[in-house]
Amino acid sequence: HDVTIHAGDKTIHVHGASEEFLRIIEQAKRDGIHEEELLRLIEELVK
């Protein structure tokens, strides 16, 4: 999957995102996670 995530003034493109990655991001959004926290989460996941 190619994913584009908008968080605040940043746009992150993730190529080859796994289903698990997508679920984590969707869950985080539903939980109302702060955008900066979401960015950190994404950066950890894509290392």
Rank of each mutant, 00 (worst) to 15 (best):
H1K: 14
H1Y: 15
H1L: 14
D2H: 13
D2L: 12
D2A: 12
D2G: 13
D2N: 13
V3H: 06
V3A: 07
T4A: 06
T4F: 01
I5K: 02
I5D: 05
I5L: 04
H6V: 15
H6F: 00
H6D: 10
H6E: 12
A7C: 08
A7N: 10
G8E: 05
G8N: 08
G8H: 05
G8A: 06
G8Q: 05
G8V: 03
G8P: 04
G8T: 06
G8M: 01
D9P: 09
K10L: 11
K10M: 11
K10W: 01
K10D: 06
T11D: 10
T11S: 11
T11Y: 02
T11V: 13
T11Q: 10
I12E: 02
I12G: 02
I12M: 06
H13V: 14
H13D: 06
H13N: 11
H13P: 05
H13G: 03
V14P: 02
V14R: 01
V14G: 02
H15W: 00
H15V: 10
A17K: 02
A17F: 12
A17G: 06
A17V: 15
S18L: 09
S18H: 05
S18A: 05
E19V: 04
E19L: 08
E19Y: 01
E19F: 02
E20W: 01
E20H: 06
E20R: 01
F21V: 11
F21P: 01
F21W: 12
F21D: 11
L22H: 06
L22P: 02
L22K: 02
L22T: 08
L22M: 12
L22W: 08
R23E: 15
R23Y: 04
R23V: 11
R23C: 06
I24W: 08
I24D: 04
I24Q: 10
I24G: 03
I25P: 00
I25T: 01
I25L: 14
I25K: 00
I25N: 00
E26A: 13
E26H: 07
E26I: 08
Q27S: 09
Q27F: 01
Q27C: 04
Q27G: 05
Q27H: 08
A28T: 03
A28R: 05
A28E: 01
K29T: 11
K29D: 05
K29Q: 15
K29L: 12
K29F: 11
K29E: 10
R30S: 14
R30A: 15
R30Y: 04
R30L: 13
D31L: 10
D31S: 12
D31K: 10
G32N: 11
G32V: 04
I33C: 05
I33R: 07
I33V: 14
I33K: 10
H34Y: 10
H34F: 12
H34I: 13
H34E: 14
E35P: 15
E35A: 15
E36H: 09
E36C: 08
E36T: 11
E36Y: 05
E36P: 03
E37R: 04
E37T: 07
E37C: 06
E37S: 06
E37M: 07
E37Y: 03
L38D: 00
L38R: 01
L38A: 01
L38V: 05
L39Y: 06
L39S: 07
L39Q: 09
L39G: 06
L39P: 02
R40G: 07
R40N: 11
R40V: 10
R40S: 12
R40C: 04
R40A: 12
R40E: 11
L41H: 02
L41F: 09
L41D: 01
I42E: 00
I42Q: 00
E43C: 09
E44G: 12
E44S: 15
E44H: 13
E44A: 12
L45T: 05
L45S: 04
L45A: 07
L45E: 04
V46C: 09
V46Y: 05
V46A: 13
V46T: 12
V46N: 08
V46F: 10
K47W: 01
K47I: 12
K47L: 12
